[in-house]
Design a binder for these strands. Structure first.
Lengths: 113, 113
DNA sequence: TTAACGGTTGAACAAATGCTCAATCGTTCC
DNA sequence: GGAACGATTGAGCATTTGTTCAACCGTTAA
């Protein structure tokens, strides 16, 4: 039978365990990262960082079909990362989560400096 | 044929386009997010934020098979997010990218405050 | 009223993903 | 040398994922 004590890292293990104790937090965290892990969604979020945009414009900007954008927006909406506002036949979207915006900002800064 | 000019958001589109102009950066960015988007990998990264750990310990801490951990470590290694150090039959891993560490830190802070 | 358009939706499909399982490698210890 | 163990690897598999396509809804403009 395998034994962790075979190599003396008991205290290390405990520290690591403690660090990831809040499984719930880590779960939600990885979910957030997962959302931004898709290029289309990340582009949507980045685009909306600047301003309010409708589905049609988003599709044009990202060079993706309106359907594809709509599908992704639905995901972003279900996680309350984005909110919509209807105006005639247009539907405008804006970011609804300043955390996401900060995350992206930090990430971009790291990659561009 | 569809026309963006149908609704007056030309300048908005241009701004959005400019914002996501560096497709390469966004691509790498979403790749990074994608890596952290998997719970197992995120846990590995978080665990390694604290200290050097070997595969066996990681497997114990995360309650995942050594094989699964090894597979994920291979991915993290291929993206140079992690580096290894052999010591006898043990292989110790440490983080190799301070950007990742910062990203996770920022994300955790947002979710816990 | 009807046609056009922006947007949404669901089915279908291909691609990617993450795990298990079994085989294998290298090192240590008897 | 041989057994035990930590670690890696590849095949196989089930699941998830993101897109396309076609149908449809609501609003606008003719």
């Amino acid at each position: 039978m395998k034994e962790s004590l075979a190599h003396n890292h008991r205290t290390s293990i405990q520290a690591a365990l403690k660090a990831i104790a809040d499984v719930d937090t880590l779960g939600r965290l990885s979910e957030t990262f997962k959302i931004l892990g898709d290029p289309t969604r990340l582009k949507i979020v980045v685009a909306l960082t600047n301003e309010e945009l409708c589905v049609f414009d988003l599709a044009q900007v990202l060079s993706v079909s309106e359907s594809a954008v709509s599908h992704q927006l639905r995901i972003l909406r279900s996680l309350r990362l984005v909110k919509q506002r209807k105006e005639g036949k247009l539907v405008f979207y804006t970011l609804n989560d300043e955390h996401i915006e900060d995350l992206v900002r930090v990430a971009i800064r790291h990659y561009t400096e």
